[in-house]
């Protein structure tokens, strides 16, 4: 069972619909004991980092997520759900979950912020087995749907699986052990997005 984490900052319906489309059973929950029983977790997210973190903390889900990731549960973070995995976000200058070293910063080079629309994702580290799997049947530089003003700067470059460009280069996919995270919205990214979610399922 997949649990889509409900913490008041997600487009839960869209993510749930995408699960149905790829034939997966899911539950939407913000309950710690349900999260612990899940086989796979998805942390969706739209909106601001500060609100997202305070929503997680108010529901006491921050520690649960950290612990479930630590014990190796398959985890997918989407958009804000990716950004919250880092130590700190410039958006509201808020401390985040700290699963990964590094911070989340604002776009500085493009005039139009947020980035809204379809951007291409270039795969990196082709030799990495998991990265190969997560991009299976997705041509390199396929387009995915993004809505973001901020992006992640991981300290550990080995977790980077996909790169995009919006004025500056941004990390659009990370893969590390049981964690996959995307800056784009796979649940809104047409066929490429569906394939990505299927690949994630197959990886788990």
């Amino acid at each position: 069972m997949i649990v889509i984490i409900d913490y008041g900052s997600g487009n839960l319906g869209s993510v749930a619909n995408s699960m149905v489309r790829i034939g997966l059973r899911y539950k939407i929950s913000g309950n710690a004991s349900v999260l612990k029983k899940a086989r796979m977790l998805i942390l969706p997210g739209v909106g601001a980092a500060k609100k997202g973190m305070s929503n997680l903390k108010a529901r006491k889900l921050d520690q649960v997520i950290i612990e479930e990731i630590r014990i190796g549960k398959p985890f997918l973070g989407i958009c804000l759900g990716m950004q919250l995995l880092f130590e700190r976000s410039e958006e509201g200058n808020v401390e985040c979950l700290g699963i990964f070293e590094g911070e989340v910063i604002k776009f500085k080079k493009e005039r139009k912020i947020p980035q809204i629309g379809w951007n291409n994702v270039a795969k990196v580290q082709f030799h990495n087995f998991k990265i190969k799997k997560i991009f299976s049947d997705i041509p390199d530089n396929s387009y995915f749907y993004f809505v973001n003003s901020y992006y992640c700067l991981p300290k550990d470059k080995s977790i980077i699986a996909g790169i995009s460009k919006y004025g500056e280069r941004l990390v659009s996919v990370i893969v590390k052990d049981n964690i996959v995270a995307t800056q784009f919205h796979p649940e809104k990214s047409g066929q490429a997005g569906m394939q990505f979610l299927k690949n994630w399922r197959n990886l788990c």
Partner: peptide, 8 residues
């Protein structure tokens, strides 16, 4: 529509 389409 939300159930059927894969784009925003």
């Amino acid at each position: 529509t939300a159930r059927e389409v894969t784009i925003p």
